[in-house]
Design a protein around this nucleic acid. Structure first.
Lengths: 340, 340
DNA sequence: CTGAAAGCGCTTACAG
DNA sequence: CTGAAAGCGCTTACAG
């Protein structure tokens, strides 16, 4: 009644000491059942609930995990958040979210504000800038505070910590091989996420796949969506492209969109495969064949790993989990039995 | 060096009292410049940064705001988060995110865990279940704790607090009128968010728009996406539908997708208008004409309002801000000059 | 079985 | 200008 009640308030009402009340509420075996009952009913009556801040200060644990990701608007990260949140909650943990907006500085700020008492641990996917400059000085703070970090998706070999990811090289290799299998012979790799670890590895996988197949390698790197159409169409004019591996969801969709606009038929003329199993690709016409990176699962595993680490339920060596990706065949690629 | 340093640590090193060190660090005028300098250099050397938990316990302010939304995967909410996060950060606030998953129970849990010390205030958009059962008992806890709440988008008249929203009725009316203007005469309203305040209001706006125009009202309410195609096509067969107002982004896209699949031409046969200006509608072919609800702006305003409320920079009467929506004309509706 | 005391890390009114 | 003391709300080792 009228604001939050504290242990002190209850103690006064009950004519007991704060310690006794505390123990009663925490069901300590030290306390008699009679007292426990009395305390509990008064606690209920006064809607008592312990102050989390005070508990955290005492226990040095917040039961909160910090999540720092580049962007909520990318389907992949929205799905990952979903997984993190669900799993964290099931273990009784809350989630604080910070967005780096692909900026190293904001990533650093986020680490610094979270690390000092606000969270027990961190789940991160690195910003573009961090990955391209390879500058990890801003992680020092987290290390000094002994705050465990779990990296997912966009990870780095220079950071020693738990990691959840997919084998991007292998995934892109398989995606490219899928195009080869259905008969594509002029396959290009298109990326708008150049500079990220995953973009780089996917490029590598593409190159590995076409090695010794006689397919020539063409990498298209688009920095600005404003020039997407122009660059893509120019490339399509060069050779008779029949397959495109796009490094993320939106660029795959854009590829299809502009190709169709310029009278290329998808998948008859060009088969397109993308990354991330999101609503965008699922609902597009033609629907997008994608490499499923199991975003929700990555998030969920990251949360589980972090929590087990915090609760010391896993061995000290860093966890390095690599999820198997799978290809979801949809309409943007020729079906296998069509194979020329 | 080796873990976090506290005021006590610094005091010991400096041979000063904890109080003096605290004041020096907070640049209190009570302290001499010489001492301040000494304290600061030692603080820097030991990477001292104050423990947020302890500060919060003392000041009874966490500088954190809790956000409870139904779903991150809906573009609208992802955009809103983006706005909230950005604005909150610019004011030096952190953001804790909880997802209700459209469930009243989870919404209640989130309120309860956040309200007790973890956050200074709450930004919420109500879950479907909360809105359809009209049960607000779980808000009691927030009220008792005197935690200010700002509601956005999915609000309720039964809750007295700050609110940021759009005029959904008017927006749907304008959307429908847009279809009328381009010549549509058989317009249906399609919704998958029946039971939410916004869904209901949009339905009303549609009805208002067609009143006295001779257009017959047809409401299609789809509960399960598995039946979307079937229900939609059945409806299209009934009459010669030439316009569809869809209550959200995904249902608009699905409408277009299945219509095209069944050989209807968009927009030549049917013009489709949806809600939310997201990547999905923007990149679809044909691109989607939408009512822009200014999701990011709603989030940003919600954050600003909450923070001003917390810092007592606005009058006590609840803020009720209604954003003007705008229609973004794209390819899924006939252009105006085509009007029959 | 109950309570007084110390302490988590900080701030601030009060003395000196 | 500096410091001792109290307190934010809790927990827990120690006495009784």
């Amino acid at each position: 009644m009228g604001g939050k009640s504290t242990l002190k308030d209850l103690a006064k009402i009950l004519n007991l000491s704060v310690s006794t009340v505390s123990k009663a509420i925490n069901n300590s075996p030290e306390i008699s059942d009679v007292t426990k009952d009395k305390v509990r009913s008064i606690a209920l009556l006064n809607n008592y609930s312990p102050n989390k801040l005070a508990q955290s200060l005492k226990s040095q644990r917040t039961k909160t995990i910090g999540v720092i990701i580049p962007d909520v608007l990318m389907t992949f990260f929205a799905m990952a958040i979903h997984g993190i949140e669900q799993t964290a909650n099931s273990y009784g943990y809350k989630v604080i979210i910070c967005l780096s907006n692909e900026s190293l500085e904001k990533e650093a700020e986020s680490i610094n504000t979270l690390v000092n008492g606000s969270v027990d641990g961190l789940i991160m996917s690195l910003s573009k800038e961090t990955q391209s400059t390879n500058d990890y000085a801003h992680f020092e703070e987290a290390i000094r505070y002994n705050t465990p970090i779990v990296l997912f998706d966009r990870t780095s070999d220079l950071l020693i910590c738990d990691k959840i990811k997919i084998d991007d090289t292998l995934a892109a290799k398989e995606a490219t091989e899928h195009l080869l299998k259905i008969g594509c012979r002029n396959i290009i790799f298109l990326t708008t996420i150049y500079g990220t670890s995953v973009g780089e590895k996917r490029r590598l996988g593409y190159l590995q796949a076409i090695e010794n197949t006689g397919v020539e390698d063409t990498i298209i790197n688009i920095k600005d969506y404003a020039q997407f159409e122009c660059i893509l169409i120019e490339a399509l004019k060069q050779g008779k492209i029949d397959g495109i591996v796009a490094a993320d969801e939106l660029s795959a969709i854009s590829t299809i969109k502009y190709s169709i606009k310029h009278s290329y038929k998808i998948p008859e003329d060009i088969s397109v495969i993308g990354f991330t199993n999101g609503v965008l690709g699922e609902n597009f016409v033609p629907s997008l064949t994608v490499v499923d990176q199991h975003a929700t699962m990555q998030g969920s595993l990251a949360a589980e790993t972090l929590i087990k680490r915090l609760e010391k339920k896993i061995p000290v060596e860093p966890v390095h989990k690599v999820l198997k990706t799978s290809i979801i065949e949809r309409e943007s690629t020729l079906p296998l039995f069509y194979a020329k």
